[in-house]
Design a protein around this nucleic acid. Structure first.
Length: 570
RNA sequence: CGGGGCGUAGCGCAGUCUGGUAGCGCACCUGCCUUGGGCGCAGGGGGUCGCAGGUUCAAAUCCUGCCGCCCCGACCA
């Protein structure tokens, strides 16, 4: 392609509304333009890159025997009502009515449509397993679109669905996807980790997320580099920092102490001259509108996900002040588990084997000393604590890191949720109707692009991996007015094209600085400068990311570049 | 939906407090010039100042309402 003929609207300055790096650079480099909050135009460069990404996805999906379909984005309400998700999805779903007043929605995922399709057609176990996938636009009415292409209302997703007769088959389909996803993200040149994830509202058993570490991410991932442990913060487990001071010895009885004005853990610790690790914090939560108490070490945070799992509730909220008073007889700041009857006391396992600690007395401005879980109250021990900085890995005791990450893929064993609610059954070997077991597997296509931009951006702009860059090579004739440079550049361009290289020729009549800056900004992995060394038959090949440059014979340049690109793509 | 910020030319901004002919830089167009890192000179085009109402002789500026965008929180298969 000739740059002079392309629409690549680069910007010298960063638009004010862009906060995260990938958003700023994709705007500046002329990849995208915003139409509305969370809705973007993908311009030529973005589209080329996205096509390369989806090309890789297609190859790897096809390689595991998956079949590509394309399903409607416009869905009738009935299908979603059958699964129950018409209501569950709430305001996150774009809804509309047709001219006759019938309810429709824009698909935010396609479990229902896939299940409905399979239900109508798949009758026998002999037709299983099946893996169907599609690459298409999904719609979600996000409460707050943000971070450029990372959280949007309309985006491209590769989603696939597996249908198996039995759990062993699902395990197999799941594993195929896991391997395919690793290949896809490897080929896209990303650095990522795979983490165990919380199954969330989807219902189902096993679930893993593919995460890329970036400051722009919204999820937190806990990793231990030496051991390879990685988990979503919602699910991560760890060894907490040990208590600062040992617990007092002896079988001591609880002792009431006046703590005027000391409400927060910090204030109580200060008042009693004890470290926060010697205190217990007591939280009152309403789990499905029934009170439940959570007790943790003073310096620990409750994990909402773990609490929900332990409490076995579908939703929960902090109790209101008047509810706390009614349940425990005191205000937040003086609450404790001692003497509590008929309320579950979920207690974090970090308090197992602890004794003679401090907690609220359920009397305003009083605390209790010498409280021992298991003696002074009846704990129900669970892992409730959110992993915190400084924690170490559970098994090895090696240091953990907590990283901000963005989710680029998610694989999920759905189980029978949709086959049950929507009646997807086949006849098994014995001729008995059996529900089909399903899996669902998603990849955020734009997020791959964003993640690559975030991972590899430098001061000069984007530096994309060769496999997903819109072009592989840009040729820059340094002096626009020099005919011999133009001719040589053009010849090299034709040669590269003949070798199947995606090459861009910067034939614009601009000063060299402008062309260099633009080429750097848009992130093409290789640049060929055709300049003054041409008189010696040489051109300069520059690696965008490493800045390494080499003078090569113009006659060899095309062949060398083709080889380097092939190597860069693995 | 709660809290905060911002809407003035394609982009970045000043002007708003204290009402009086709408500005600057970049980008864009024309010509000359220049050509190894956003080059120089000269000339030029482009804005219902987010929208609507109000106050005033006069509103980008003051008042009221609305809309949009961004950030924090809530939310997030």
């Amino acid at each position: 392609m000739l740059w002079s003929r392309l629409f690549i609207p680069t910007l010298r300055e960063t638009p004010a509304e862009a906060e995260v790096v990938s958003h700023q650079l994709l705007l500046r480099a002329g990849y995208i333009r915003q139409l509305s909050a969370g809705i973007y135009n993908y311009l030529y460069l973005a589209q080329r890159s996205l096509l390369k990404i989806t090309g890789i996805i297609r190859q790897e999906m096809d390689a595991i025997g998956a079949q590509e379909l394309l399903l409607p984005a416009l869905n009738p309400a009935e299908v979603w009502q059958e699964s129950g998700r018409w209501d569950v999805m709430g305001d996150n779903m774009f809804r509309l009515k047709d001219r006759f007043g019938r309810d429709l929605c824009l698909g935010m995922t396609h479990e229902e449509i896939m299940t409905a399709l399979a239900r109508g057609e798949v009758r026998s176990y002999k037709q299983l397993p099946q893996i169907w996938y599609q690459i298409q636009t999904k719609f979600r009415d996000e409460p707050r679109p943000k971070s450029g292409l990372l959280r949007v209302r309309q985006f491209i997703m590769k989603d696939s669905y597996s249908f198996d007769l039995a759990p062993a088959g699902l395990d197999d389909s799941y594993e195929k996807h896991r391997v395919a996803y690793c290949r896809i993200f490897d080929r896209c040149g990303l650095e990522y980790v795979t983490v165990d994830a919380h199954s969330g509202a989807m219902g189902g058993s096993q679930s893993q997320e593919f995460m890329v570490a970036t400051e722009a991410g919204e999820d937190y991932t806990v990793i231990c580099r030496p051991t390879g442990y990685a988990a979503n913060l919602e699910k991560a487990v760890s060894r907490p920092v040990p208590p600062t001071v040992p617990d007092p010895d002896g079988a001591l009885a609880p002792e009431k102490v006046h703590t005027p004005g000391a409400k927060t853990i910090e204030q109580v610790a200060e008042f009693l001259k004890l470290p926060q690790t010697s205190l217990m914090k007591t939280l009152v939560l309403m789990a499905d509108e029934k009170p439940v108490i959570a007790v943790l070490r003073g310096d620990h945070q409750l994990s909402e996900t773990k609490f929900q799992t332990a409490a076995g509730c579908t939703e929960f909220r902090p109790a209101h002040p008047e509810e706390m008073r009614q349940i425990l007889g005191a205000d937040a700041g003086s609450l404790g588990p001692v003497g509590v009857k008929n309320v579950r006391i979920l207690t974090d396992i970090a308090l197992q084997d602890r004794k003679n600690m401090v907690c609220g007395a359920n009397l305003d401005d009083y605390h209790l000393l010498n409280v021992t879980p298991g003696e002074d109250f009846a704990p129900e021990f669970h892992d409730l604590r959110q992993v915190a900085p400084g924690d170490t890995e559970l098994e090895s005791g090696l240091p953990l890191e907590i990283l901000k990450t963005v989710e680029i893929g998610h694989i999920f064993k759905l189980g029978y949720k949709y086959s049950h609610s929507m009646g997807l059954n086949v006849l098994n070997h014995e001729g008995v109707e059996t529900p089909v077991i399903m899996g669902s597997y998603g990849i955020g296509v734009e997020r791959i692009l964003c993640a690559a931009v975030e991972l590899f951006a430098d001061q000069n702009g984007i530096t994309l991996p060769a496999a997903i860059a819109p072009f592989e090579v840009v040729i820059t004739p340094v002096k626009s007015s020099d005919e011999s440079l133009q001719t040589a550049a053009r010849a090299l361009y034709d040669e590269l094209k003949a070798l199947g290289v995606d090459v861009l020729l910067d034939d614009r009549d601009l000063s060299p600085g402008v062309k260099f800056k633009d080429a750097d900004l848009i992130g093409i992995p290789f640049r060929v400068n055709v300049g003054k060394k041409l008189v010696d038959g040489k051109v300069e090949v520059v690696n965008r990311r490493t800045r390494e440059s080499a003078d090569v014979a113009v006659t060899e340049a095309a062949r060398l570049l083709a080889a380097q690109i092939a190597a860069a793509k693995q």
